[in-house]
Design a protein around this nucleic acid. Structure first.
Lengths: 338, 338
DNA sequence: ACAAATTAATCAAACGTTTGCGATGTCTTT
DNA sequence: AAAGACATCGCAAACGTTTGATTAATTTGT
């Protein structure tokens, strides 16, 4: 017995007034009398009236929906970030739809298209590893759909974004290691295509230069972030002429690979490791990185969501400034290895 | 220069045919001539026509959207499950909207209401810790919105659900410990209000009984799943008259608390620990649980999504059988402690 | 007491798409 | 050549809600 949902029309019919009056009555429009308004609300409640959202959205041309495209939801960072996004969205009565690119460029392009078809009011994006072109986002401009990038941001100027300053974080990390007495510091970086890799390298070089040390390019190796790739990268250091005593690693996942590998080789105590992400789990490891860069995923998600909602609500001034928000990252020091 | 999106009407006007023909042409309706069809498609493409989803949804009374309500997205289990749900949904051209109850009953009630207003075609739910009433779901029946529960399921008969058999998993776990020679096995269980706690206890008792051992109630303690609660629960065992040599722990998060505590007390080697969840991170620990119950979050999400899509598509027969799907959980043996 | 202002409610159009039915026109069949 | 069969397309209604323009009724100001 699926009762057809009550509509405004039906309420109007019963009350012998026009649908527009019902609509206005429910919205507390001043031009509806107090008594009529009350009658409308009473009947609406007793008939269990629920506005047909699809009709409203269609009518208004707004969806009260923001889309989120990210690489992989099951990664801790993104799951926390989207959790924050949802928390912010629901406060403003928006809903969130999301989709995963699984780090594939073509999938990402498809998803942007799909989000556009869904007529989302705005889009939050963390780009895929593979993405190096960005025209699929530009199309959204002509549809007046604002986009805010977060964490994995494109190397463009005229976009809104929220991201961590990985460069300054890396400076902190390297400085920390230098202060601890290390003089040869290795770095297992990500793929060179990633902007985040560039930032890490820049930070590394800046810290080295600042401390008047010589930069040795062979101490910075790229890595595809897989376990095998990590092992290969580590090999670079094992027989290095200036064997590093500390290693800065792209993120905690890679750090885990590296630690497992080093333990197998029984050289784990020869290295101090610093990493990124600050996974909560890290503190439970016996041979954990001695420090990890906290990138504040919840905060990033929160800020990105608020900026997007701001863009959605503000009248679109032609040449608005771009939001370029940097979340300062912190170096979290773990307990020292015994 | 936000160009208004192209509409069917506009295509019709340019081609001097009726909107209905355009609509039919784009859908390959047989009653449209091949040449006209071609003209329509060509123009649609060149004008970058995108169907207005809101209008279609409104017209059809369907949203091609499924809602997901779960306690906490940043928990590994749920992030993987919803990732699977999204993967399945997108295959069938559905989109996913989700919201978190944060384990609060009242929030859950609100969200169900909101999903209903959004006119989702179906709903996937993992209920909150606090939820013990279920009438907020029953209202969905009258709106013909199917609901499939997964993992955290209500103790009701007439609902669709997908869940793990935690009881049989616990039997496996206890049997494994017995086979290893343990004769006194402790259990740190969850809150007694949780159905999942009941299942674990039942499994524990069944395994004990099956092996003709005596059940000692003081060996099973409840715990609120916090770190302090875990420490308190562990205290029960430290001076027990039949001190257990192995402990079955509610999940891996609790296991981590316990391990940290035991390491501090330097008694970590006195216990074999078995846990639930099989977090990927566990294998990196030095003193990891010797086994963990894998609950296959991806599989559960996948099955739940497919069942829901099935329900959405099948004509709603009045008295349909309820899907009660049990995903067999497995005991994953980790490498033995050295 | 009469025009002007205020209040209360209605009308009708609009949003973009789909779909049953009816209207042409052409082609085949006997 | 008439009748049906078929192919191709248009008409118009419908989905539920919102909103600018209007009307009608009432109150106010002078």
């Amino acid at each position: 017995m699926q009762s057809k949902p009550t509509t405004i029309k039906e309420i109007a019919r019963i009350l012998n007034i026009s649908p527009s009056s019902v609509s206005r009555g429910l919205h507390d429009h001043p031009s509806i009398g107090a008594v009529t308004k009350e009658k409308i609300k009473q009947l609406a409640k007793s008939l269990n009236y629920e506005p047909n959202n699809a009709a409203i959205l269609f009518q208004k041309g707004k969806t009260y929906t923001i889309g989120v495209i990210l690489p992989e939801l099951s990664e801790y960072f993104f799951s926390v970030a989207i959790s924050a996004i949802e928390d912010e969205a629901i406060k403003k009565n928006y809903t969130v739809i999301f989709a995963q690119s699984h780090d594939h460029y073509e999938q990402e392009v498809k998803l942007v298209e799909k989000m556009k078809n869904q007529r989302v009011d705005g889009l939050l994006v963390s780009i895929s590893k593979e993405t190096s072109r960005f025209d699929h986002f530009e199309k959204l401009n002509s549809f007046n759909i604002p986009v805010v990038f977060f964490d994995r941001i494109p190397p463009l100027k005229n976009v809104h974004y929220v991201a961590c300053s990985l460069e300054s974080a890396t400076v902190k990390a390297v400085n920390y290691l230098l202060k601890k007495g290390h003089r040869s510091i290795g770095m297992i970086n990500g793929p060179s295509t990633l902007y985040a890799s560039e930032e890490r390298k820049d930070g590394y070089m800046r810290a080295i230069a600042f401390n008047r040390l010589k930069f040795d390019p062979s101490l910075v190796v790229n890595c595809d972030l897989t376990e095998q790739g990590t092992i290969d990268a580590a090999g670079q250091f094992l027989n290095h002429k200036r064997k590093p005593t500390a290693i800065v690693v792209f993120n905690d996942y890679v750090a885990l690979f590296l630690i497992r590998h080093f333990k197998k080789l029984n050289v784990i105590n020869d290295y101090d490791i610093v990493s990124y992400s600050n996974l909560p789990i890290i503190s439970y490891l016996d041979n954990s990185p001695i420090a990890s860069v906290e990138q504040y995923p919840y905060l990033q998600g929160q800020k990105a969501a608020n900026i997007l909602l701001d863009l959605i609500h503000s009248p679109n001034s032609e040449n608005r400034a771009y939001y370029n928000t940097i979340v300062e990252s912190d170096l979290i020091i773990n307990e020292v290895k015994e």
